[in-house]
């Protein structure tokens, strides 16, 4: 077996790649504090003015409101639908299961541009106004596969005889689901909700086709790139979003691991 040397070609390569992966994020954060309207080296000095400008920007706050709203709504619906789907495919081996699995996983691989334009056609055809609400409806679709994966891997982790025991003790099937299955899955449910929220909060490609005039945060951010003078403010916004999403995702990952190892929780 290899000895675990600290400085081997492998570890140096790993370190280098890590630096490269974190560098762009670090640069965004550093330049969000740079006291200059131009994003160039050398750095000019420390300022918080770009963060201050974020607070004063009403358009941005409105976009933030839209993003929070559709993020919350779409991840709530995706988590509920994902839970139902996950229970169905894990607990029942009935026909229809594999078709459902295939169709619900497809959004993972289909390019978002295709979703965007096909929903544009749908909403146009049935007369749904292009809006943040429409984007929320779309975000449910791309979130469902992730919710399904997280929740079903939790369901696989504990035997269904807990549900049977509850039913032997007099609970109805739905009662057993609500009182036994859902509580056992709760860390996974929260993890699924948070992951779906992050997906929706960050999603630009589909939203760009169907939000109409209700810009979401990514759509707003993209639209600001045309104005060089607003770039430092955009960088400050980007830095905040980076850190928030990273924190939320770390917490989600922790929840998911807690939720997947029933042995630890007894």
């Amino acid at each position: 077996m290899n000895k675990h040397k600290i400085f081997s070609p492998g570890s140096i390569y790993f370190l280098l790649m890590c630096v490269l992966l974190y560098l762009p994020i670090l640069l965004l954060i550093i330049f969000s504090f740079n006291d200059s309207t131009r994003l160039v080296f050398p750095l000019k000095g420390f300022t918080l003015q770009w963060y201050g400008k974020l607070y004063e920007n009403r358009e941005l706050l409105k976009a933030l409101g839209n993003s929070l709203m559709i993020g919350f709504g779409s991840s709530l619906i995706a988590t509920i639908l994902g839970t139902m789907g996950a229970i169905a495919i894990v607990r029942f081996k009935l026909p229809g299961r594999s078709v459902f699995l295939a169709v619900s996983a497809l959004p993972l691989v289909i390019p978002y541009v295709i979703f965007g334009v096909s929903l544009l056609i749908l909403f146009n055809e049935v007369g749904i106004r292009l809006s943040a609400f429409a984007a929320g409806l779309a975000h449910v679709i791309i979130s469902i596969p992730y919710a399904l994966l997280i929740i079903s891997s939790r369901l696989v982790g504990f035997p269904d005889n807990l549900e049977e025991a509850a039913m032997d003790l007099g609970a109805s099937y739905w009662g057993a689901l609500l009182k036994v299955t859902i509580p056992i899955c709760s860390p996974a449910l929260l993890a699924a909700f948070l992951l779906c929220f992050t997906i929706s909060f960050d999603e630009y490609a589909i939203a760009s086709f169907i939000v109409g005039t209700d810009a979401t945060l990514p759509v707003y951010l993209f639209s600001q790139l045309r104005f060089p003078t607003r770039l430092p403010m955009v960088v400050a916004l980007a830095a905040v979003l980076m850190i928030v999403t990273m924190a939320v995702m770390l917490f989600t990952e922790w929840l998911r691991r807690v939720g997947q190892s029933p042995a630890k929780k007894g």
Binding site: P42, D202, L221, M249
Partner: peptide, 28 residues
């Protein structure tokens, strides 16, 4: 290794726009 990939996709691309830009970070 995977943590940076969890942050916003759009923003990571945006960061590269700033890095590669003609009056951008790499050039300066």
């Amino acid at each position: 290794l995977i943590i940076p990939a969890w942050t916003s996709y759009l923003l990571r691309i945006f960061a590269w726009k700033l890095i590669l830009g003609s009056s951008g970070l790499l050039n300066s």
